[in-house]
Design a protein around this nucleic acid. Structure first.
Lengths: 221, 221, 221, 221
DNA sequence: GTCTAATCGAGACGGTACGTCTGGTCTTTTT
DNA sequence: AAAAAGACCAGACGTACCGTCTCGATTAGAC
């Protein structure tokens, strides 16, 4: 297994933490081992199969070391997820709204349905339904930022003059990503490209987008 | 406390079950006590606070009696939910598509955010993320049927000639209800009437709806 | 290993306890397994090596089963000891005071220095120094009764007219057995027959014993 | 609180140790703080309540500092005890055997039942039952020397001609102090002056003591 | 006046056992 | 036949100490 963390490691690692159990901070080695063990276990045995004992055992770490830095197994999973996925869902910038949105929704669908991190994410969303405090942590740690990223293509289009400025961004984003999450979390139906492209098309039609590639004409195609 | 079960009791009760711990079949009394205990506990203490031991204790029933009829605590909660909410979300029939959809989405939002049954439902959706078998049970026990109910306004509109027949129903439903679920399950934002009405308006615009009240004109655009 | 419990089983077994985990009482099988595991462990690994986890594991019993019936590992050891040793130290009755006392002290010395039960007993006495509540339990469970047994030879001698009635029994017993315990618990010196016989001789000399075998003479000096 | 160590400090302090954390030796300040913390904790919380972590915390010392100089908590307690009690139980010299013995046994009884050091001593004796290596350390560090002190009155009496030379000293000492320890360690009965005086009387009677105060007569008064 | 080496406080580390809790299984008696 | 009762095995929970370790600060004596 392993997790192939990218070097960037945007989220958790405390500044300059490469030492070993001394006053100068925690062991980065132990931290990484715990995070890897946690999401390996989630992928292998599912959410219920993740226990702090199991994480500690697989990470070759003392239980107390896990408890010292994380309160619950879901905090570990969240930490692991944040580290893995921080940059997975940044929408691309092709200079074209339609293209950007299609690519972004497709990427989101694949992330949720195909990647290990997506599996972790679904588990975390699931747990958030049972634990309001964790829901808040998940929101502030990930969802808020993700919503900001989701908004980027629209904001760039506004800047380009491709899109009217008065849009209710939040509502539009919900209409774009909401159906994707809905299929992933509740329905059993596949979330294929046809589906995500259709969401984009519906948006373009209702949002009076100026098609820059086909300048001079108004309307949505 | 209590649950005010409607007489209909659409789901579980075995035929002729009014006895109590005798040779004549299971005790309907015990069954009801268990279901009530389960969702009372959920409302009071949250999903984690529901345990089979706790259910049995509060229902005044032996643990084995719970295990005899349900495999897990989530099966109890599902059973309780189905009994309570079976018909809760049937969309109304005003003879007008726009009116029906607006009312239905509003009702859905209220159900999810305000009712006890909605709280149970969110908990079950949460658990389904951790347990594929339960997810399947939840789908076949409720979600599939609910999707059929969600479709009713559209189908009636097609029958009325208000809506073209070639529509991809599943995708349209996802675009209508998906954003609602998304806000409820993931975002912290309120799901007010303005939001749900906007979803309906977007649908009407993209779906070439014939406005019967304003007959003679074609399309909405 | 094993413990070869004598059938008599004077102490613990609850009345009619041969069933298995039902409402009618505890499992006698589990109880025996726990007691045997406890003193096997003590003999093998010493007092520190006895843990409730270890007892449960070796007995093939759940930890909770141990905790259900005993509060601490020392309670288990005490129970085991009582069952093993209840009648181990009853002084013999030869009809002669000197003979009885010599045999009894010799038996006590051998019990303490040679038998497994003696090892358990020393451990319990040791623990009693750290735990006043346990000390009281040990006294009421064993020591008080043992002191009564220690007194028997003297009382029989009084009944026979071999010994004056006004004796301070407690003080005399302490002078007889105290030195034995002292050597066992504190000194490293052997407690051989010469030593125990000397204690008896000193007692006979100071206690104005009528030597029935040599009737007619008074006093021992 | 505190311990009021007498200046003599017979046991541990290394020569010229008043520095603090440099190459030339240990910190006497830390050493004293540890010893005081250890027996304060014992008196306050009992043997079980003494932990190396607790000692270090209360002494305001790092755990490692304790481990650097002592192997176990019982070694700390032993060290503390030796420092406190080294000369506590030296029998007086009145020039009279009976008087010396009566005073000595009385002092022993009071030490064991009344003083803080006596409480520590009982705890150490208790632990020695569980740990043969510690038992040996306790014997060589204290008991052997104490037995030598116990013997002093008898040896002086022999020198004075008050007592026959052929006596088995060890056995006689055991008969004098054994019953006292026995009552302290095992029985709940008080160890009052009447009891200790009786032990001396029994000894005098059996040991053909020449009463110097009443010279000329033989026998034990 | 630096340099060196031992000890100090601090505290993270891998571990073991604690005592508690819940999950599921089982057996017996009662209805 | 199913209920109530509750003991059973199993194993995770979160905590307390264990004994080891690494660190940076402190402080003599050696140079």
């Amino acid at each position: 297994m392993g997790r192939g963390r990218t070097a960037a490691a945007a989220v958790g690692p405390p500044p300059a933490a490469r030492h070993h159990g001394n006053r100068h901070g925690r062991s980065e080695q132990a931290r990484q081992a715990v995070l890897e063990a946690a999401d390996d276990l989630l992928v292998e045995k599912g959410f219920t199969g993740v226990t702090i004992e199991g994480i500690a055992a697989r990470a070759g770490v003392a239980k107390q070391t896990v408890y010292r830095w994380w309160k619950t197994k879901t905090d570990v999973l969240l930490d692991a997820f944040l580290q893995d996925a921080a940059e997975a869902l940044t929408p691309p910038d092709h200079g074209d709204l339609a293209q950007d949105l299609r690519a972004h929704l497709r990427q989101l669908a694949l992330f949720l349905t195909r990647s290990d991190a997506g599996a972790v994410f679904k588990a975390l969303i699931g747990h958030a339904q049972h634990d309001p405090a964790f829901a808040a942590a998940l929101r502030s740690g990930y969802l808020d930022e993700q919503r900001r990223r989701d908004r980027l293509p629209l904001e760039r289009a506004v800047a380009r003059g491709q899109l009217a400025a008065g849009l209710d961004m939040a509502a539009e984003i919900d209409q774009l990503v909401g159906p994707v999450y809905h299929r992933v979390l509740m329905a059993a139906e596949p979330v294929d490209q046809e589906f995500t492209d259709r969401l984009v098309a519906a948006f373009l039609r209702r949002a009076d987008v100026v098609d820059l590639a086909d300048a001079g004409e108004a309307g949505s195609r």
